[in-house]
Write a protein that binds this DNA or RNA. Sequence first.
DNA 1: GTCTATAGCTTGATAGAC
DNA 2: GTCTATCAAGCTATAGAC
Lengths: 190, 190
Amino acid sequence: MSGTRERIVEATSALFMERGFSGSGLKQICAASAAPMGSLYHFFPGGKTELAAETLRSSGRAYQLLVEAILDAAPDIVTGVGDCFTGAAETLRASDYADACPIATVALEVASSDEALRRVTAEIFENWVCSAASRFAAAGVNPARARELAIVVLAALEGGFLFSRAARSTTAMEAIGRSMTDHVAAALRS
Amino acid sequence: MSGTRERIVEATSALFMERGFSGSGLKQICAASAAPMGSLYHFFPGGKTELAAETLRSSGRAYQLLVEAILDAAPDIVTGVGDCFTGAAETLRASDYADACPIATVALEVASSDEALRRVTAEIFENWVCSAASRFAAAGVNPARARELAIVVLAALEGGFLFSRAARSTTAMEAIGRSMTDHVAAALRS
DNA sequence: GTCTATAGCTTGATAGAC
DNA sequence: GTCTATCAAGCTATAGAC
C-alpha cells in the first residue's frame, strides 16, 4: 500500500493548479513527491497522459465532495451556495491564490489539443453539474431549471476563480457569490 | 512596416488559445507565422515573456472592441448581453471550439507562476469590467451595482467558454446566456 | 518496487554572417 | 532586418541493475 502513488497524484494536482499541464514536468513532479522516475512509470505506464487523467479524476472527485459537504451542511440551499463562494474566497486568500479549481487550467489547455484528456475534464464537469442540479431539485427548483441553475452557478464560480486569481483579490468572487445567491433565491420563488 | 511582427503576434494568439502559454513553443510560433527565429528576437528582445505580454494586450483589446460593438449595436442592453452569449456560442461551433477567450487559459497558467504576466492579465480583465460597467450604468443600472453586474456577466461568460469547450457543446453557453439576460433585466428593474 | 542513467527530442535563447 | 547554426537545459520516456 505504498503511499508513493498517492504522493505522486497529490503533487501533480498541486503543480497543475500552479503551473498547468504543459508547465509541469515529470521530473518536477517526481522531485515534489520524493519519488524516483521509475516509480512514476511503474504506477502510470501510460506516462504523463495517464497520470494527468487519474489526477484530474481524483481531484475532481475530492472537489465535488467538498462542495456537497458545504451544501449539505447549510440550513438551506441559498445559504449553501453563498457558503461555497465565501469558502472559495477564504481558501484563495489563505493559499496565496494558488488553491483554486483543480480542473479549469488543464481543461482549457487540453480542450483543443488532447482529446483523451478533454473527455476526462468533460466528464468531471458533468458530474459536478449533476450533483449540484440534484441539490437544487431537492430544494424545490423545477427539475428542468435545476440543471441550468447548476450550470450557471458553477460557471460563475469558475469565472470567479479566474478573475480573483488574476487580480489577487477576492472582491470578484464575493460579488459573484452575492449575485448567485440572489439568482438561486429567485429560481426558488418561481 | 513589415507585417512580420503582426504575423508573429497573431500566430501567438491563436496558439495560446489552442495550447496555452507553456504548450506553445517559440519554434512553433515561428513556423506558424513564417518568421525566422532571429526576427522574433529582433521584435521582442525580451523573449517569450515580452511576446506573450504584447499578444495578451493585443487580443484583449480586440476582444473588448468586439464585445463593445455587439453591445452598442443592440437595441437595448438586455438584448446586447444575450447577443454576446449567442455570438460566443456560434463562434465556438464555427471554430470547432478553438476560438474562445484569448486570455483565460494563459491567465490561469501564469496566475501563480509568472508575476509579470499575471499583472498583464489582471489589467485586461479590469479594462473589460470597466467597459461593461459603463454600458450597464448608461442603460440605467445604479453605478455601484453596474460594476458588480459587469463582473458577474463576464465571469459567467468565461465559465461558459470553459464548460462549452470541455463538453464540445454550446448548451452550457446558451443556458448561461439566458440566465444572464434575466439577471441584467432584474438589475434594471431594481 | 526502487532507483540511476541516459537516449532522443524540444525548449528558450544567442551569435554571427549576410 | 533576415536567416542559420548552435548552445545549454529541459522534456518524456526507457533500460536495466538492484
